[in-house]
Simulated scan of single mutants.
Amino acid sequence: MPQIITVTPSPAIDASTSVGKITAFSKLRCAPLQRHPGGGGINVARVIHRLGGEVRAVYPSGGATGELLRELLDREAINGITVAVAAETREDFTVFEESTKQQFRFMMPGSPLTDPEWTQLIQAALVGPPSYIIASGSVPPGAPEDFFGRIVQAGAAIGARVVVDTSRQPLKAALQNGLFLIKPSLSEFWNLTGLNCDDDATLIDAARDLIDRGLVEMVALSMGPNGALLITRDRALRAEGLAVEAATVSGAGDSFLAAMLWSLQRDPELATALRFGIAAGTAALVNPGTELARPQDIASFLPQVRIRELAEVPRIAASQAP
Protein backbone atom coordinates (compact mmCIF):
# COMPACT_ATOMS: atom_id res chain seq x y z
CA MET A 1 0.00 0.00 0.00
CA PRO A 2 1.16 3.59 -0.61
CA GLN A 3 2.90 5.04 2.43
CA ILE A 4 1.64 8.55 1.63
CA ILE A 5 -2.01 9.46 1.10
CA THR A 6 -3.18 12.93 0.16
CA VAL A 7 -6.69 14.25 0.84
CA THR A 8 -8.13 17.09 -1.25
CA PRO A 9 -11.66 18.06 -0.15
CA SER A 10 -11.92 20.84 -2.75
CA PRO A 11 -10.23 19.69 -5.99
CA ALA A 12 -10.41 21.52 -9.30
CA ILE A 13 -9.54 21.39 -12.94
CA ASP A 14 -6.84 24.04 -13.36
CA ALA A 15 -7.21 25.64 -16.79
CA SER A 16 -4.48 28.05 -17.91
CA THR A 17 -3.50 30.09 -20.94
CA SER A 18 -1.53 33.21 -21.86
CA VAL A 19 -2.27 36.39 -23.79
CA GLY A 20 -0.16 39.28 -25.01
CA LYS A 21 -2.11 41.98 -23.17
CA ILE A 22 -5.37 41.99 -21.22
CA THR A 23 -7.63 44.74 -22.58
CA ALA A 24 -11.19 45.33 -21.41
CA PHE A 25 -14.06 44.76 -23.87
CA SER A 26 -11.73 43.30 -26.52
CA LYS A 27 -11.38 39.86 -28.04
CA LEU A 28 -8.22 38.44 -26.53
CA ARG A 29 -6.29 35.98 -28.69
CA CYS A 30 -5.01 33.37 -26.26
CA ALA A 31 -2.48 30.56 -26.43
CA PRO A 32 -3.87 26.99 -26.49
CA LEU A 33 -5.65 26.10 -23.26
CA GLN A 34 -3.92 23.71 -20.86
CA ARG A 35 -5.79 21.70 -18.25
CA HIS A 36 -4.22 19.99 -15.23
CA PRO A 37 -5.69 18.19 -12.23
CA GLY A 38 -5.60 20.60 -9.30
CA GLY A 39 -6.23 21.24 -5.64
CA GLY A 40 -3.65 21.19 -2.85
CA GLY A 41 -3.45 17.47 -2.09
CA ILE A 42 -3.73 16.47 -5.74
CA ASN A 43 -0.83 18.77 -6.62
CA VAL A 44 1.21 17.26 -3.79
CA ALA A 45 0.45 13.75 -5.06
CA ARG A 46 1.48 14.68 -8.62
CA VAL A 47 4.91 15.87 -7.49
CA ILE A 48 5.52 12.95 -5.11
CA HIS A 49 4.66 10.55 -7.93
CA ARG A 50 7.08 12.31 -10.29
CA LEU A 51 9.81 11.87 -7.70
CA GLY A 52 9.15 8.14 -7.58
CA GLY A 53 7.21 8.04 -4.32
CA GLU A 54 4.26 5.74 -3.66
CA VAL A 55 1.24 7.96 -3.15
CA ARG A 56 -2.53 7.75 -3.36
CA ALA A 57 -4.79 10.78 -3.91
CA VAL A 58 -8.20 10.82 -2.21
CA TYR A 59 -10.66 13.37 -3.57
CA PRO A 60 -14.35 13.96 -4.41
CA SER A 61 -15.46 13.84 -8.03
CA GLY A 62 -18.71 15.09 -9.51
CA GLY A 63 -20.20 15.70 -12.94
CA ALA A 64 -18.38 16.09 -16.24
CA THR A 65 -15.47 18.02 -14.75
CA GLY A 66 -15.11 15.31 -12.12
CA GLU A 67 -14.80 12.73 -14.90
CA LEU A 68 -12.17 14.91 -16.58
CA LEU A 69 -10.30 15.22 -13.27
CA ARG A 70 -10.10 11.43 -12.99
CA GLU A 71 -9.00 11.16 -16.61
CA LEU A 72 -6.22 13.73 -16.15
CA LEU A 73 -4.93 11.94 -13.07
CA ASP A 74 -5.04 8.61 -14.91
CA ARG A 75 -2.90 10.13 -17.66
CA GLU A 76 -0.26 10.89 -15.05
CA ALA A 77 -0.66 7.38 -13.57
CA ILE A 78 -1.70 8.78 -10.18
CA ASN A 79 -3.18 6.13 -7.92
CA GLY A 80 -6.47 7.55 -6.65
CA ILE A 81 -9.59 6.91 -4.62
CA THR A 82 -12.57 8.97 -5.73
CA VAL A 83 -15.68 9.67 -3.71
CA ALA A 84 -18.63 10.22 -6.05
CA VAL A 85 -20.46 13.42 -5.14
CA ALA A 86 -23.56 15.19 -6.43
CA ALA A 87 -22.01 18.60 -7.07
CA GLU A 88 -20.00 19.35 -10.21
CA THR A 89 -16.23 19.57 -9.61
CA ARG A 90 -15.08 23.18 -10.01
CA GLU A 91 -12.80 24.56 -12.69
CA ASP A 92 -10.36 27.41 -12.01
CA PHE A 93 -8.79 29.63 -14.63
CA THR A 94 -5.37 31.31 -14.87
CA VAL A 95 -4.17 33.82 -17.47
CA PHE A 96 -0.55 34.91 -17.89
CA GLU A 97 -0.15 38.38 -19.44
CA GLU A 98 3.00 38.23 -21.55
CA SER A 99 3.54 42.00 -21.85
CA THR A 100 3.69 42.56 -18.09
CA LYS A 101 4.59 39.01 -16.97
CA GLN A 102 1.70 39.19 -14.51
CA GLN A 103 -0.53 36.25 -13.69
CA PHE A 104 -4.28 36.56 -13.11
CA ARG A 105 -5.92 33.73 -11.19
CA PHE A 106 -9.70 33.22 -11.16
CA MET A 107 -10.71 30.82 -8.37
CA MET A 108 -14.23 29.40 -8.38
CA PRO A 109 -16.12 28.54 -5.18
CA GLY A 110 -15.52 25.06 -3.85
CA SER A 111 -18.11 22.45 -4.79
CA PRO A 112 -20.33 21.61 -1.79
CA LEU A 113 -20.17 18.25 -0.01
CA THR A 114 -22.92 16.50 1.90
CA ASP A 115 -22.35 14.88 5.30
CA PRO A 116 -22.04 11.35 3.86
CA GLU A 117 -19.64 12.61 1.15
CA TRP A 118 -17.12 14.32 3.42
CA THR A 119 -17.35 11.43 5.87
CA GLN A 120 -16.42 9.01 3.05
CA LEU A 121 -13.39 11.18 2.21
CA ILE A 122 -12.03 10.78 5.73
CA GLN A 123 -12.68 7.03 5.74
CA ALA A 124 -10.95 6.61 2.36
CA ALA A 125 -7.81 8.31 3.72
CA LEU A 126 -7.37 5.60 6.35
CA VAL A 127 -7.04 2.66 3.94
CA GLY A 128 -3.67 0.98 4.27
CA PRO A 129 -2.95 2.30 6.81
CA PRO A 130 -0.60 4.99 5.47
CA SER A 131 2.51 6.31 7.18
CA TYR A 132 1.63 9.90 6.22
CA ILE A 133 -1.67 11.61 5.50
CA ILE A 134 -1.34 15.00 3.80
CA ALA A 135 -4.58 16.98 3.95
CA SER A 136 -4.39 20.13 1.89
CA GLY A 137 -6.50 22.93 0.44
CA SER A 138 -9.65 24.71 1.51
CA VAL A 139 -12.75 23.35 3.26
CA PRO A 140 -15.67 23.33 0.80
CA PRO A 141 -19.24 24.35 1.63
CA GLY A 142 -21.11 21.63 3.51
CA ALA A 143 -18.02 20.21 5.20
CA PRO A 144 -17.45 21.16 8.85
CA GLU A 145 -14.93 23.85 9.71
CA ASP A 146 -12.96 21.26 11.66
CA PHE A 147 -12.80 18.85 8.68
CA PHE A 148 -9.00 18.75 8.81
CA GLY A 149 -9.10 18.32 12.58
CA ARG A 150 -11.23 15.23 12.11
CA ILE A 151 -8.66 13.85 9.69
CA VAL A 152 -5.96 14.48 12.29
CA GLN A 153 -7.93 12.56 14.91
CA ALA A 154 -8.65 9.67 12.55
CA GLY A 155 -5.03 9.53 11.39
CA ALA A 156 -3.67 9.56 14.92
CA ALA A 157 -5.92 6.60 15.79
CA ILE A 158 -4.16 4.45 13.16
CA GLY A 159 -0.67 5.76 13.90
CA ALA A 160 -0.28 7.93 10.79
CA ARG A 161 1.64 11.20 10.79
CA VAL A 162 -0.77 13.88 9.62
CA VAL A 163 0.31 16.97 7.70
CA VAL A 164 -2.11 19.84 7.13
CA ASP A 165 -1.72 22.68 4.64
CA THR A 166 -4.65 25.04 5.02
CA SER A 167 -5.30 28.43 6.63
CA ARG A 168 -7.37 30.49 9.05
CA GLN A 169 -10.01 28.72 11.15
CA PRO A 170 -9.62 25.27 9.53
CA LEU A 171 -5.91 25.37 10.43
CA LYS A 172 -6.63 26.50 13.97
CA ALA A 173 -9.16 23.69 14.36
CA ALA A 174 -6.67 21.11 13.03
CA LEU A 175 -4.02 22.22 15.51
CA GLN A 176 -6.28 21.42 18.45
CA ASN A 177 -5.78 17.74 17.70
CA GLY A 178 -1.96 17.62 17.44
CA LEU A 179 -0.20 17.48 14.08
CA PHE A 180 3.05 16.22 12.67
CA LEU A 181 3.66 19.21 10.40
CA ILE A 182 2.03 22.39 9.14
CA LYS A 183 3.19 24.42 6.13
CA PRO A 184 1.80 27.94 6.40
CA SER A 185 2.84 30.83 4.20
CA LEU A 186 4.08 33.91 6.03
CA SER A 187 0.67 35.63 5.84
CA GLU A 188 -1.08 32.44 7.04
CA PHE A 189 1.35 32.20 9.95
CA TRP A 190 0.67 35.82 10.86
CA ASN A 191 -3.05 35.09 10.91
CA LEU A 192 -2.47 32.02 13.08
CA THR A 193 -0.19 33.65 15.65
CA GLY A 194 -1.17 37.33 15.57
CA LEU A 195 2.32 38.35 14.47
CA ASN A 196 3.14 40.86 11.72
CA CYS A 197 6.89 40.60 11.16
CA ASP A 198 9.44 38.64 9.14
CA ASP A 199 12.19 38.51 11.77
CA ASP A 200 13.55 34.96 11.94
CA ALA A 201 14.00 34.94 15.72
CA THR A 202 10.43 36.06 16.36
CA LEU A 203 9.01 33.57 13.85
CA ILE A 204 11.02 30.72 15.37
CA ASP A 205 9.86 31.73 18.83
CA ALA A 206 6.21 31.67 17.75
CA ALA A 207 6.59 28.29 16.02
CA ARG A 208 8.25 26.80 19.09
CA ASP A 209 5.38 28.05 21.22
CA LEU A 210 3.02 25.92 19.10
CA ILE A 211 5.40 22.97 19.40
CA ASP A 212 5.83 23.32 23.17
CA ARG A 213 2.07 23.32 23.60
CA GLY A 214 1.83 19.98 21.82
CA LEU A 215 -0.10 21.34 18.85
CA VAL A 216 2.44 20.36 16.18
CA GLU A 217 5.85 18.68 15.94
CA MET A 218 7.28 20.65 13.02
CA VAL A 219 6.58 23.96 11.25
CA ALA A 220 7.67 24.52 7.64
CA LEU A 221 7.21 28.24 7.10
CA SER A 222 7.32 29.16 3.41
CA MET A 223 8.26 32.79 2.77
CA GLY A 224 8.02 33.10 -1.02
CA PRO A 225 11.14 34.63 -2.61
CA ASN A 226 12.69 34.92 0.86
CA GLY A 227 12.95 31.15 1.21
CA ALA A 228 11.73 29.12 4.17
CA LEU A 229 12.24 28.14 7.79
CA LEU A 230 11.94 24.59 9.10
CA ILE A 231 11.47 24.52 12.86
CA THR A 232 11.29 21.71 15.41
CA ARG A 233 11.67 21.72 19.18
CA ASP A 234 15.45 21.30 18.88
CA ARG A 235 16.41 22.67 15.47
CA ALA A 236 15.77 25.71 13.28
CA LEU A 237 16.93 25.63 9.66
CA ARG A 238 16.97 28.58 7.26
CA ALA A 239 16.97 28.39 3.46
CA GLU A 240 17.22 31.46 1.26
CA GLY A 241 15.09 31.67 -1.86
CA LEU A 242 16.60 31.22 -5.33
CA ALA A 243 16.29 34.04 -7.86
CA VAL A 244 14.51 32.90 -11.03
CA GLU A 245 12.33 34.46 -13.69
CA ALA A 246 8.90 33.15 -12.74
CA ALA A 247 6.49 31.91 -15.41
CA THR A 248 3.81 31.29 -12.76
CA VAL A 249 3.07 31.69 -9.06
CA SER A 250 0.85 28.60 -8.97
CA GLY A 251 1.82 25.37 -7.27
CA ALA A 252 5.09 26.44 -5.65
CA GLY A 253 3.86 25.78 -2.12
CA ASP A 254 2.41 22.40 -3.05
CA SER A 255 5.64 21.41 -4.81
CA PHE A 256 7.66 22.56 -1.78
CA LEU A 257 5.56 20.43 0.58
CA ALA A 258 5.54 17.39 -1.71
CA ALA A 259 9.30 17.25 -2.17
CA MET A 260 9.96 17.85 1.52
CA LEU A 261 7.61 15.03 2.63
CA TRP A 262 8.94 12.72 -0.06
CA SER A 263 12.45 13.34 1.28
CA LEU A 264 11.45 12.90 4.94
CA GLN A 265 9.73 9.62 4.14
CA ARG A 266 13.04 8.34 2.73
CA ASP A 267 15.54 10.10 5.03
CA PRO A 268 14.79 11.82 8.39
CA GLU A 269 17.51 14.47 7.88
CA LEU A 270 15.74 17.84 8.03
CA ALA A 271 18.34 19.77 6.04
CA THR A 272 17.97 17.38 3.12
CA ALA A 273 14.18 17.69 3.23
CA LEU A 274 14.31 21.49 3.28
CA ARG A 275 16.80 21.51 0.41
CA PHE A 276 14.45 19.39 -1.71
CA GLY A 277 11.52 21.59 -0.73
CA ILE A 278 13.20 24.80 -1.85
CA ALA A 279 14.42 23.21 -5.08
CA ALA A 280 10.94 21.92 -5.91
CA GLY A 281 9.19 25.16 -5.00
CA THR A 282 11.58 27.03 -7.27
CA ALA A 283 11.14 24.46 -10.04
CA ALA A 284 7.38 25.04 -9.99
CA LEU A 285 7.90 28.75 -10.68
CA VAL A 286 9.68 28.21 -14.00
CA ASN A 287 6.95 26.02 -15.52
CA PRO A 288 3.83 27.74 -16.92
CA GLY A 289 0.31 27.41 -15.54
CA THR A 290 -0.07 24.58 -13.04
CA GLU A 291 2.57 22.32 -14.54
CA LEU A 292 4.24 22.08 -11.09
CA ALA A 293 7.80 20.96 -10.36
CA ARG A 294 9.50 18.42 -12.60
CA PRO A 295 12.33 16.12 -11.40
CA GLN A 296 14.87 17.44 -13.90
CA ASP A 297 14.28 21.02 -12.75
CA ILE A 298 14.44 20.01 -9.09
CA ALA A 299 17.77 18.31 -9.74
CA SER A 300 19.15 21.42 -11.44
CA PHE A 301 18.22 23.69 -8.53
CA LEU A 302 19.32 21.37 -5.70
CA PRO A 303 23.04 22.29 -5.80
CA GLN A 304 22.13 25.99 -5.54
CA VAL A 305 20.16 25.64 -2.28
CA ARG A 306 22.01 26.71 0.84
CA ILE A 307 20.81 25.65 4.30
CA ARG A 308 21.91 27.35 7.52
CA GLU A 309 21.42 25.91 10.98
CA LEU A 310 20.35 28.79 13.19
CA ALA A 311 21.69 29.05 16.70
CA GLU A 312 19.29 28.70 19.60
CA VAL A 313 17.39 31.96 19.97
CA PRO A 314 15.99 33.31 23.23
CA ARG A 315 12.25 33.41 23.70
CA ILE A 316 10.98 36.86 22.65
CA ALA A 317 7.24 36.78 23.22
CA ALA A 318 4.59 34.13 23.45
CA SER A 319 2.38 33.92 20.39
CA GLN A 320 -1.37 34.13 20.65
CA ALA A 321 -3.24 30.88 20.95
CA PRO A 322 -4.76 29.62 17.72
Rank of each mutant, 00 (worst) to 15 (best):
S99E: 14
R238G: 03
A156W: 05
V219C: 00
G253F: 12
S26Y: 12
S18M: 00
N196M: 03
S319H: 04
D209K: 05
V163M: 00
Y59L: 13
Q102F: 11
S222F: 06
I211G: 07
I151H: 02
R90W: 11
P225A: 14
E245Y: 08
F96A: 00
R315H: 13
D209T: 13
A87M: 08
I42H: 03
L210D: 01
R56N: 02
N43T: 07
G80M: 04
E67P: 01
A271E: 14
G39M: 06
E71R: 15
G62D: 04
A243K: 15
R306N: 13
A154D: 06
N177L: 03
V19H: 04
T248K: 05
M260C: 08
V127Q: 09
A259V: 08
A31P: 01
A258E: 04
L229R: 07
D165F: 04
A220S: 09
R266W: 10
T94M: 10
A31T: 06
A317Y: 01
L126T: 03
I182R: 02
V58P: 03
M107W: 12
A284Y: 07
P268H: 12
R105L: 03
V83H: 08
S250G: 10
G128V: 11
D254E: 12
G66M: 05
P9L: 06
R306Q: 15
G110L: 04
H36S: 06
P37G: 15
K172Q: 14
A220F: 03
R208A: 04
E117S: 06
L186I: 13
T82K: 09
A280P: 09
T89E: 06
D267Y: 14
